[in-house]
Computed example of a mutant assay.
Amino acid sequence: MAIAQPTGARAPWYARTATTAGRPVVLGIALAMCAPGEYHLARLAGWSDPWAYGMPATLSAYAGIAAVVAASRPKGARGRFSAIVGATVAILLALAAQIGAHLISTGHMAGNQAWLIGLISAVPPATVGHLLHLATTPATSSRPSEPQPPRDQQPVPVTAPLTAVTAPSLPPRPTEPPALPPVNYSDPRCAIIRRLYDGGHRPGTATMRTALAAAGHTASDGMIRGTLRAEVERLEPVLATYPPEQQLRAA
């Protein structure tokens, strides 16, 4: 029974070595094998030594450069389509050169045909022209950028934080005064004064005097302020913080 190995297992060293070191070796051997046929075609086209040795280097370098440019440029970048076409043509030329050279060397095709000589002679100038075209086209996307507004209409950046200016606040006015608690006052008149705080303000002397008179009680102004109201606010200190009655009338 075979035991399945985990899919994430690391490849053995000889497989890794063959992948990393084997690729440049295979590339060098393949270029060396292509060189004789391309050199032979250059000689047939009329080039003499040492210029005929430039044909293998031209076809091999041209195919490699065009292939790298086509693979490295993003979609939409200028020159990417041209690089793909150039890489395809370079590979086809290198392939045709090998086939043609072998056919000529084995006698299956005549090497002095005009169209063949003309095609071989056009390879160096065509290669130079296309490589210069690839060198002058930027490797950025050709998509148009968004239009920028005029300089005088661009927003001005804020360099300093804005601080809010707050007006001085008045003491909070209670919306609902607390209900009359069960407080035992020393004087029953204190309960009458306590009810005046239910309006949300601290009653004045005249208001307290009127309320006491309406209930049938009398007291001097000093006793109203210093004894009766003082006892109410002593037992409930929060009442002393209420805004004065005069302030509310002025507002």
Results as ranks from 00 to 15, higher is better:
residue 3 I to A: 13
residue 6 P to V: 11
residue 9 A to I: 11
residue 15 A to W: 13
residue 18 A to V: 04
residue 19 T to F: 06
residue 20 T to E: 11
residue 20 T to V: 15
residue 27 L to P: 05
residue 28 G to Y: 00
residue 31 L to T: 02
residue 38 E to D: 12
residue 38 E to V: 05
residue 39 Y to P: 00
residue 41 L to C: 05
residue 42 A to R: 01
residue 48 S to F: 01
residue 50 P to F: 06
residue 50 P to G: 04
residue 55 M to G: 05
residue 55 M to R: 10
residue 56 P to N: 10
residue 61 A to L: 15
residue 62 Y to M: 08
residue 62 Y to F: 13
residue 62 Y to D: 13
residue 63 A to H: 03
residue 64 G to H: 10
residue 64 G to N: 07
residue 66 A to L: 06
residue 68 V to P: 01
residue 68 V to Y: 08
residue 71 A to W: 10
residue 72 S to I: 07
residue 75 K to N: 08
residue 75 K to V: 08
residue 77 A to H: 09
residue 79 G to H: 09
residue 80 R to D: 10
residue 81 F to A: 15
residue 85 V to M: 01
residue 87 A to S: 11
residue 88 T to F: 06
residue 95 L to K: 01
residue 97 A to H: 02
residue 98 Q to S: 13
residue 103 L to G: 14
residue 104 I to A: 10
residue 108 H to M: 09
residue 108 H to W: 11
residue 109 M to Q: 08
residue 110 A to W: 02
residue 110 A to N: 12
residue 113 Q to F: 04
residue 114 A to W: 03
residue 115 W to Y: 05
residue 117 I to G: 05
residue 118 G to T: 12
residue 123 V to H: 07
residue 125 P to A: 07
residue 127 T to P: 06
residue 130 H to K: 03
residue 136 T to Q: 15
residue 136 T to C: 12
residue 137 T to K: 12
residue 146 E to V: 14
residue 148 Q to I: 08
residue 150 P to H: 09
residue 150 P to M: 11
residue 150 P to Q: 08
residue 150 P to E: 11
residue 152 D to W: 12
residue 155 P to E: 11
residue 157 P to F: 08
residue 160 A to V: 15
residue 160 A to W: 13
residue 160 A to S: 13
residue 161 P to I: 08
residue 163 T to C: 07
residue 163 T to Y: 13
residue 166 T to F: 08
residue 167 A to Y: 00
residue 168 P to G: 07
residue 169 S to C: 02
residue 169 S to E: 14
residue 173 R to H: 13
residue 173 R to A: 13
residue 177 P to G: 04
residue 180 L to A: 14
residue 183 V to P: 00
residue 184 N to M: 07
residue 188 P to Q: 11
residue 188 P to W: 00
residue 190 C to N: 04
residue 194 R to I: 00
residue 195 R to P: 00
residue 197 Y to C: 03
residue 199 G to N: 13
residue 203 P to Q: 06
residue 206 A to M: 03
residue 206 A to S: 01
residue 208 M to L: 03
residue 209 R to D: 07
residue 210 T to E: 15
residue 226 G to W: 00
residue 230 A to Y: 00
residue 235 L to C: 02
residue 236 E to Q: 14
residue 236 E to H: 09
residue 236 E to T: 11
residue 237 P to C: 02
residue 242 Y to H: 03
residue 248 L to P: 01
residue 249 R to A: 12
residue 250 A to T: 04
